[in-house]
Amino acid sequence: MLKLYYSPGACAMASHIALEEAGADYEIVKIDLRARQQKTPEYLAINPAGVTPALATEQGVLTENAAILTFVAQTHPEAKLADTSSAFAFARMLAFNSFLGASLHPAVGRALFAKPPLESEAKEAALEAALVKYRLVEDHLFQGPWAMGEAYTVSDGYLSVFTRWGRQAGFLDKERFPKLNDHLDRVQARPAVQAVLAAEGLSAV
């Protein structure tokens, strides 16, 4: 059985959604980031980076959402969570996921979760930088109706993590970002995502 180490509402939700959408045989282990459980010796033995997610498999532990999402899609092909019709189509999904993890996530994270919290001009600059990344997805990377086009993929759950954060923070304006807001609504309406929200003690936003 697969074991996912996660923190409620954090980026690990992307991997949680993928596992649920895939119908995988898995269990979840909550890591309380506020209590710094991610820095305990027990968890550092699982993921020395001290972050979530981490997915324990029979072959070993995988970290980083982009890798875990790829693993879930490839080990559960019947769920059709990735376009494998060509090497290019699959690589295009990997490129999208890499952008989310390496570009959008850090930008939004700095705007919302910087420690100590940013103030005045620094806060405004960080927010503007995050909005530029959201705009890039809205205008160029998002294919529609789902992230990669006609079919739902692991990229959709991943994207929804960051649009959820943006909506909660009040800066994912529906007029400025209609595609991303519509997408988040449709992702949150999916039974698998509703099950994940319930399991993590969360509600749709």
Rank of each mutant, 00 (worst) to 15 (best):
S85C: 11
L44E: 11
A204H: 05
F142L: 02
L104M: 13
F96Q: 01
L19P: 08
V29I: 10
R135Q: 14
L184H: 06
E64V: 06
A204R: 09
A49F: 14
G109P: 12
P191E: 09
V72P: 10
A10V: 01
A130M: 10
A82W: 00
A89E: 02
Y6R: 00
A125Y: 11
E175Q: 15
Y6K: 04
Q37F: 05
K115W: 08
L136Q: 14
K133M: 07
R190C: 04
F177V: 05
A102W: 06
A82H: 01
G9I: 03
L141R: 06
E128Q: 14
P8F: 04
L104V: 12
G109C: 06
Q188G: 08
Q143V: 05
A45D: 08
A189L: 09
A102D: 12
I17P: 04
I28N: 08
S155F: 00
A87C: 03
D185P: 03
L180M: 11
T63R: 09
D182M: 09
D25M: 08
F171Y: 15
K115A: 15
D182Y: 09
A18N: 14
G170M: 11
Q59C: 07
E200C: 03
G144H: 12
D156Y: 00
P116R: 02
L55N: 03
V29Y: 03
L118V: 12
G109A: 13
R164S: 08
L202N: 08
K174E: 15
I46H: 07
A54Q: 03
K80R: 14
L33R: 13
E200D: 03
S103V: 14
E128I: 05
N97C: 12
N65I: 04
Q168C: 07
A91V: 04
